[in-house]
Simulated assay, not measured.
Amino acid sequence: MPARVIVLAGPSGSGKSHLAERLGLPILRLDDFYRDGSDPALPRITSGANAGLVDWDDPASWLCSEAVDALTTLCRTGVVETPVYDIAHDGRNGYRKLSLDGSPLFVAEGIFAHHVVAPLREAGLLAAAYCLRQHPAVTFWRRLTRDLREHRKPPLVLLRRGLALARDQRRLVADAVSLGCLPVSADEAFRLVQALPVS
């Protein structure tokens, strides 16, 4: 039997990575499927203080079909090579091998994770899909402190981006729900995953 995927979606800073680690299952990090910074197909912000910068929060900045192919391969063969996206290199910096080692379930998490739900469900490979809910102030602070710590962008850019994402958070969650995710807290998702059948 193929393995099945637990999808963890949610706004940046909502706790997806932390929950994925807490679950103790193999993890495929969907954010590694971003386009390289030199890709001419990258979308741009068209208005406001950050106009002209790459819009990394637009799904067009991410390679959905490549991510779905990797998920499908991992489900059916138990092993896959995935890119390693490095912010410092503004793109991919090698590949890593991910093996399920016989696990019937694994986690796929990322800010665009809700876009893989429909194709996985259609292929019979979806175990569950959750969108993590969190108060916008909490996600704003988590995201800002993480991005500042990792020097992802200049502080003023990060602050403006964080405020825009906080204002847009309700719509982001609604989009994930419309694409098949169940809106839950991290603790609720943890309990639901523990109750999933493993065969």
Rank of each mutant, 00 (worst) to 15 (best):
A137R: 13
F140E: 06
A176F: 01
R35W: 07
T145M: 04
D187C: 04
L158D: 09
C181I: 11
L165H: 01
V198G: 07
L30D: 01
D58S: 15
T72C: 04
M1G: 15
A113C: 10
Y130M: 08
L100F: 06
E21V: 00
Y95C: 06
E21N: 00
R191H: 09
R4C: 12
D32A: 09
G10H: 03
R143Y: 07
R92L: 11
R29P: 00
R22W: 00
R149W: 09
G37S: 08
K16V: 02
V157P: 02
H135D: 15
A123V: 05
T145S: 09
L196F: 12
R76H: 14
D36R: 13
Y95K: 12
D57N: 15
R44L: 14
L30K: 01
R149T: 12
L159W: 07
V116D: 01
A137F: 02
E109T: 03
P11E: 08
G10S: 10
L192K: 12
L156M: 14
S14V: 01
I111Y: 02
G48H: 09
H135G: 12
D39W: 07
P40E: 10
S99F: 04
S178R: 14
L172Q: 13
L23T: 00
P2F: 02
G78R: 02
L132A: 04
R133G: 00
G102F: 07
A123N: 09
H115K: 04
A166K: 02
L158Q: 11
H135K: 14
Q134I: 15
A49G: 06
T72Y: 01
Q169N: 08
I87M: 15
G162P: 08
D90A: 15
T145I: 05
L163E: 14
A118W: 02
L148G: 08
I6Q: 07
V193F: 06
H18C: 07
D101I: 00
L23D: 00
A137M: 04
R171I: 00
P155A: 13
A60Q: 14
S17E: 02
A174M: 03
A174P: 00
A49I: 13
V117D: 05
A127F: 06
G13H: 05
C75M: 05
A49V: 14
L172C: 03
Q194C: 05
A9Y: 04
P2N: 13
D86T: 15
G37H: 04
A51Y: 10
L42I: 15
T139I: 05
R170A: 13
P197Q: 01
S47C: 05
R191K: 08
Y85V: 11
C75E: 03
C75H: 01
A49E: 15
I87Y: 14
A113I: 04
D86I: 07
S103T: 10
E122N: 07
L23R: 00
T145F: 00
A128T: 09
W62H: 15
S185F: 09
Q134H: 04
R191E: 10
K153P: 03
T77R: 14
R171D: 08
A189H: 08
F140W: 10
F33G: 07
R171V: 03
V117N: 05
V68L: 06
A3S: 15
A3E: 09
R35P: 07
A118N: 12
S12F: 00
